[in-house]
């Protein structure tokens, strides 16, 4: 498979943005960049120039370990048939008005 010039020379970084202080960082997308500072600047320009963020994380994409589509069954199915794990399973006593 041939690689584009960017794929040959500039690594990919995943970008996480925090929309306001105290909120969790959420995945926003990815950028190509030569180094961490460059990735931070590119992330700022691509994902955070319209007040979308107060803080940014950039992470080299290669260090992320992800589950695969084949993992869907063993990883996630067991949760489906154990309804008692969900709060909705339990009936709230009539006397309870305030949570």
């Amino acid at each position: 498979m041939t690689q584009s010039p960017a794929e040959r020379s500039w690594p990919l970084w995943e970008v996480f943005t925090q929309s306001k202080e105290g909120e969790p960082h959420q995945h926003a997308g990815s950028v190509h960049a030569t180094d961490a500072e460059h990735a931070l600047q590119n992330a700022r320009d691509v994902y955070a120039r319209r007040n979308e963020a107060v803080n940014l994380w950039v992470v080299p994409s290669v260090v992320i370990t992800a589950s695969t589509p084949e993992d869907v069954g063993p990883f996630f199915d067991p949760a489906n048939d154990k309804a008692y794990r969900h709060p909705q399973f339990y009936k709230v006593p009539k006397g309870v008005k305030v949570f």
Partner: peptide, 11 residues
């Protein structure tokens, strides 16, 4: 030379 830099320069 690359999309990200295009965006940066235009910004």
């Amino acid at each position: 030379p690359i999309l990200e830099e295009d965006v940066a320069l235009v910004n």
